[in-house]
């Protein structure tokens, strides 16, 4: 763990943590409801979907690639899993298996195209976004699924706390999904050799091939993992929304990208951490929630989000440049 502790004070994560804590503290003082358990639980639940996707996207960004297609992947997985669930009793495991399986399959499809077409991952996944989404809308004719099975609608939850007003606080599936995605990604990136290979690939792709990393197979794993997470996240989203709409998710891919990048992941690869990503997601979630609680009309919320992204990426770039200058002086 000392690997993580070293130099933490001057890392991007530390500064981001400070920003998130200050913002959270300010909102807790300025609004009565921000720090309430109810609000925090709602925040966790409503951000579970984008948080999970951010965890998956982090792995792709660390490897030096990018994936734009995951919202379409999620839509396909969600629609298929819920359609099957409506026709036969497959239970939670069955739904999860279909979502995760279909998601990984589409992720593998991306990886195969990136490996064989030698086209940059952003172009390939823009194309597959259109492909997956177009086919889904064509096949489903855009029909929403309003009636989900009762067991799915009711969900599963474990009440852990009941307050004075008899309001129950429960651990819900979306929360578990979120924790699962971040924990799995953290173990993968930090604790497994495959994760270190992902960092190595993003750090120097030529060298990765030279030291014997099977790059094509590793890419299968990276994009497959993104798809798997997207498939599972789509179920969390369906549980939150209590319905399935084939066009509800596409268009949110760039918001997720923004959260991961705010968390310090670099588009050039090799850099990024789960902790930073969590903070990036939290920052955007706090901001939107806080503006609402402060009484700022919801219409203005995207404008603030955009401004924060712009300022944050500018500060990151300035800082990175300063660091590079320092290294150049050392080596000169």
């Amino acid at each position: 763990m000392r690997e993580m502790g070293r130099g933490f004070a001057r890392s991007h994560e530390a500064r981001l943590l400070l920003v998130v804590v200050v913002l959270g503290g300010f909102l807790a003082l300025a609004t009565p409801s921000f720090a309430s358990l109810q609000n925090l639980v709602d925040l966790l639940t409503s951000n579970a979907f984008s948080g999970m996707l951010a965890a998956g996207l982090l792995v792709v960004l660390v490897s030096g690639g990018i994936d734009i297609s995951f919202t379409a992947t999620a839509s396909v997985a969600q629609y298929a899993a819920m359609t099957v669930a409506n026709h036969s009793h497959i239970g939670w495991l069955g739904v999860a298996a279909i979502g995760a399986g279909l998601g990984s399959l589409l992720g593998l499809f991306n990886a195969v195209l990136i490996g064989t077409l030698r086209l940059s991952s952003i172009i390939v996944t823009i194309a597959t976004l259109n492909l997956f989404y177009g086919l889904l809308m064509f096949v489903t004719r855009g029909d929403e699924i309003f009636a989900l099975p009762d067991w799915f609608v009711n969900g599963a939850s474990w009440t852990v706390y009941t307050d004075a007003q008899q309001a129950e606080y429960a651990i819900t599936l979306p929360m578990l999904g979120l924790v699962f995605a971040f924990a799995l990604t953290a173990i993968l990136l930090k604790r497994s050799n495959i994760g270190r290979q992902v960092y190595a690939l993003g750090s120097n792709a030529d060298a990765a091939a030279r030291v014997g990393i099977p790059v094509f197979r590793l890419n299968l794993l990276i994009y497959g993992y993104m798809g798997l997470i997207a498939g599972l996240a789509s179920l969390v989203q369906a549980q939150n929304a209590q319905s399935v709409s084939p066009n509800a998710l596409v268009g949110r891919e760039l918001d997720v990208l923004a959260a991961v990048v705010l968390g310090g992941a670099s588009l050039t690869g090799g850099v990024g951490s789960v902790f930073g990503t969590i903070l990036g997601v939290m920052l955007l979630a706090f901001l939107q929630n806080g503006l609402l609680l402060l009484g700022v009309p919801s219409y203005w919320s995207p404008c603030f989000t955009g401004a924060v992204i712009l300022v944050a990426v500018s500060l990151l770039a300035i800082e990175r440049r300063r660091q590079q200058g320092r290294v150049r002086r050392v080596s000169a």
Binding site: W300, S301, P302, G306, L316
Partner: peptide
């Protein structure tokens, strides 16, 4: 002048400009 990668800079300005329009 600030050295931000184009994809990130315009992702931010896209969100902000659209936000202004919605606002």
């Amino acid at each position: 002048y600030l050295g931000v990668s184009p994809i990130l800079a315009t992702l931010g300005s896209m969100t902000m400009v659209k936000g202004i329009a919605i606002g």
